[in-house]
Simulated assay, not measured.
Amino acid sequence: MYPHWDANLLIVGVTVLTVALVTLVHYEGLVLMSRWLYQRKEGERRRKVLYGIFGVLALHVVEIWIFGTSTWLLLMYPNTGTIAGAHPPHLFDAVYLSAVSFTTVGFGDLTPVGPIRFKVGTTALTGFVLIAWSASFTYLEMERFWRR
Rank of each mutant, 00 (worst) to 15 (best):
G55W: 02
R148W: 12
T104F: 09
P115M: 07
P88M: 12
V129N: 06
T69S: 10
L9M: 10
L130Q: 00
L73V: 15
A58S: 13
W72L: 05
A86D: 10
K119W: 09
S70Q: 13
P3S: 12
L59Y: 02
A58M: 11
F107Y: 15
W5V: 06
F137I: 07
I131M: 08
R35G: 10
G68T: 04
T69F: 11
F67Y: 15
T111R: 07
T69M: 07
Y38T: 10
R47K: 10
A20Y: 05
Y51Q: 08
N79D: 14
R35Y: 09
L97R: 01
L110G: 03
F54Q: 11
H87M: 11
F102M: 04
V19G: 02
M33D: 04
S136K: 05
A86K: 01
V105I: 15
I131K: 00
L24Y: 14
S34C: 01
V31E: 15
F92K: 07
V25R: 08
W65Q: 12
T69C: 04
T18C: 07
V16M: 08
V19Y: 03
T126V: 13
L140I: 06
T71A: 13
R117F: 03
H60C: 01
V120L: 07
A94D: 05
A94Q: 01
P89G: 03
A7C: 08
V22W: 02
G43R: 01
G108Y: 08
L130H: 03
I66S: 07
R46P: 02
T122C: 15
I53G: 01
G55M: 02
L74C: 09
D93A: 04
R46V: 06
L91W: 12
L140W: 13
V25M: 15
G85I: 09
S98Q: 05
P78G: 12
R40I: 09
G68Q: 07
L37G: 04
L24A: 14
P3D: 14
T82K: 03
F54N: 06
F107R: 01
F54P: 00
V61T: 10
V129P: 03
A84M: 09
Y51S: 02
L30T: 06
V113D: 11
G127I: 00
R144H: 14
V25P: 03
R40Q: 15
I131Q: 04
W72A: 05
L10K: 05
H4M: 04
N8C: 07
H87V: 10
H4E: 15
T80V: 13
V61H: 02
F102Y: 14
V14I: 15
A84L: 11
I116T: 06
L130I: 03
V113L: 11
A132T: 12
V105H: 09
L10F: 08
V14H: 09
T80H: 12
T103F: 10
F118R: 09
F54V: 11
H87P: 00
S134A: 13
P115K: 02
W5H: 04
